[in-house]
Design a binder for these strands. Structure first.
Lengths: 182, 182
DNA sequence: GACTACTTTCACAAAATTCTGAAGTTAAGG
DNA sequence: CCTTAACTTCAGAATTTTGTGAAAGTAGTC
């Protein structure tokens, strides 16, 4: 009953076991508090510039016990249309934060949080910084390095280049850190 | 004539010298190429989530010879209303990227790029990461650290805490780097 | 202390974005 | 191959954001 409501449709045969586990987890979980957390964290990501629906889907996956959900589950839980789910997962797939799997012999897709997600996210950031750096170098050139503005822009470019190198190192260090403590 | 068009109004008496210097600089500058750079860089900042007008004003200041411009200059060059200038500089002031000065005995304000601008920007980023970290810790608690989801969220929180520490170090290193090479 | 140059605020029009229902597409299973 | 579950695309409604003109506010100057 509760499951039917949540998913809109009962899972089929061999997914019963999975459904039962999820249901048991749900009993222990304060679903209302979890939903609040999802919305809050998604809101913070949205404020930082992430698409709203993508942020909500991401947060929902983050709190899901298996780090994976189907489109129907996402739609049911977040109360959004299949179209909205589709758009969100397309974005998250593009930026390599999630992958899509399919239980063999099913037409349902499952969206799975990528393991190395943060690495992907920061690699992306890094590319952005690099693009800025390039644009700035060009700008410095058109202004002329002998002008105050040109020098200022060149320094900004250098700052981003510096960051670029540092970011890569940070990701390495995080992996070390995780290996050491986790 | 050209100056009149650009500023909408001729500068007064003791600013003549300044105007003449700017005009001379303008002769050397390929203003069209500079404008393209301004729009391009501003566009990139906008894509990354910065308000459009704030990004344009910032870019304009960046290419200005003195790292400073008046509202009239900004409005004239970017073709935007005084209201838009006001909104943009308010934002840039709030995030501590620019300051406002006033030539004594004038009612014109000059908006000046802050020296330690990037430090400010990254401090701000850092605060955002910290807010996320807090939210995530709370989330991990409501889910329970014994659950897979709880553990996953706790790890994410730890990642951001790690980044927090690293970011601060990076800014220090940048200052060193600048002192050493600049 | 009135005048006026400059800046800010505010209400609104325009533009962009976001989400939905519905139609279209794809592919699993008979 | 036909059926149908599941996903995607698309046109449009609703909301939000953005930038403007105009009015209001502020502070130098005479």
């Amino acid at each position: 009953m509760a499951t039917d409501d949540r998913l809109g449709k009962r899972p089929e045969r061999d997914e019963e076991a999975v459904a039962r586990r999820d249901e048991e987890a749900a009993v222990r979980r304060d679903e209302e508090a979890v939903a609040r957390f999802v919305e809050r964290f998604a809101g913070e990501l949205t404020q930082a510039g992430m698409q709203r629906m993508a942020a909500r889907v991401f947060a929902a996956l983050l709190v899901s016990e298996g780090a994976a959900m189907t489109a129907a589950e996402l739609g049911g839980q977040l109360r959004i249309s299949p179209a909205a789910v589709s758009g969100a997962v397309r974005y998250l797939t593009q930026v390599n934060m999630i992958g899509r799997e399919r239980d063999p012999g099913s037409r349902r897709e499952r969206y799975v949080l990528h393991e190395g997600m943060w690495y992907e996210v920061f690699t992306r950031r890094d590319e952005i910084l690099n693009r800025w750096q390039k644009t700035l170098r060009e700008g410095a050139e058109t202004l002329g390095v002998d002008t105050a503005a040109g020098a200022r822009i060149a320094e900004t470019a250098e700052f981003f280049q510096f960051l670029h190198g540092e970011l890569l190192q940070i990701m390495d260090r995080w992996r070390e850190h995780k290996a050491a403590t986790g």
